[in-house]
Design a binder for these strands. Structure first.
Lengths: 233, 233
DNA sequence: TTCAATAATTGTAACGGTATAATTTTATAA
DNA sequence: TTATAAAATTATACCGTTACAATTATTGAA
């Protein structure tokens, strides 16, 4: 594991362990350098990582301070990877409705940068949180990259499989969001009524080399849809 | 202006000028170093900035590539500052409905970290895009920080005034989002119907030193509400 | 030609240093 | 005591270097 990553983790752990609150001043840079026996730049990098993650904020001439958001149960939009991480503590489960190899829709083909004649894996599933329906998800995977998939994998985490099972490296993603009204089918799946609000997130996930491998559309139950971002400048 | 900022801007400009598309390979690191007569670390920092901004992606051993998202008209959630920046090209305007000094609600006081007896500026306004209602916005400003405000400022950009007029430095923000149904009043303002969907964003903006100075709740017209994020790992 | 081994390319990690800008503390003067 | 100037603290900008990992290009054998 990278040194600056390791250090960042340890500092975050330091904060959690002591339950330090918003605004609490942490030891100064030089102290961390001494503590971890690393260079200034390595520590700067670790701290910058934590800053972007929303764990701390730094003030030049003043110090390093704890940053904390108050509200619980919100899904983070910045640290992606199928929110698996943010809701770790919560009871998440999935039911796979469909899983097959097929030809992509024009839209999916365009987003995955493949032809409509190429094969893709199609997965449709419902995700539950605390026994309640969280969202309805349709995904298309480029089959020439994600060469194999089954129900068992889809019930757990496709991303974990892609990374660990297939050894692929996920790089970045584009995420488009909008709000609209549910149609009958969606309402049935989510246990809501037609024309109730829906929050839709369309995502395209890319490997580190820039190849898109997953296009998915997630329709959220508006009652469970609470998101947050901790933004910088 | 910072050198790495300047360089980042110029590289971005280089891409726009040539209308380079997704996946286009840019000159290698060493070339940029020579071109800008800067150190490797400075260029690395500039490129890292562009990477986070979603303008490029870098592949070790391979090169630097252009990143572009296809869809237009989406509001970016990562580069904050009241979306002024992202919709710059679009015709945005505001109508101020209310502006006064008052005592904050308990909720606002809590988010601004002040007492319910302290004074805050309250601003309520509607924002239009292409003559259409984009959102309804209610803001509370900590009056001991934002010492003065008037309708003229509120009709333009409060943030610009805070930064340039008052010389304050905006640091970061927490943004909470959820979806729900419009009530009668909101529906009237937005030209929609009761129980139509709404997208609500509650934001707390902080100065660089960590002081919260603005708490605002923005209720979006769901028809105009299209957002995007370009996320990294 | 095909495939595997090797070399070259290219971005990233990590070191360490000097200078500087923002903030806080201390000292000084009124 | 209060305000002001100076000094100390502290994070950040920027420089430059070595080592390394991932990818791509080249070579050479079968």
């Amino acid at each position: 594991m990278l040194k600056y990553q390791q250090i960042a983790d340890e500092i975050e752990h330091y904060i959690e362990e002591r339950e330090l609150q918003q605004g609490h001043k942490l030891p100064v840079l030089e102290e961390w350098i001494a503590r971890f026996e690393a260079s200034k730049s390595t520590l700067t990098k670790a701290l910058e990582l934590l800053e972007r993650k929303g764990v701390i904020f730094q003030v030049r001439g003043s110090g390093i301070f704890v940053r904390r958001h108050k509200r619980k149960g919100y899904i983070s939009l910045t640290s992606n990877q199928g929110f698996k991480k943010d809701l770790e503590d919560f009871k998440l489960s999935s039911k796979v409705l469909e899983l097959d190899v097929r030809k992509p829709t024009r839209e999916a083909a365009s987003n995955l940068n493949v032809s409509v004649d190429d094969d893709v894996y199609y997965v449709k599933r419902i995700r539950y949180i605390f026994e309640q329906t969280l969202c309805l998800e349709e995904s298309y995977f480029n089959k020439s990259i994600v060469t194999y998939l089954n129900r068992e994998i889809a019930e757990d985490s496709v991303f974990q499989y892609v990374k660990e099972g297939l050894g692929l490296k996920v790089g970045f993603s584009d995420q488009y969001m909008h709000v609209n009204k549910l149609n009958v089918e969606e309402a049935n799946y989510l246990g809501l009524k037609k024309d109730d609000p829906k929050f839709v997130m369309e995502s395209i996930f890319y490997l580190t080399n820039g190849q898109p491998f997953d296009f998915s559309r997630v329709t959220y139950n508006y009652i469970q849809s609470q998101f947050f971002i901790q933004a910088g400048e």
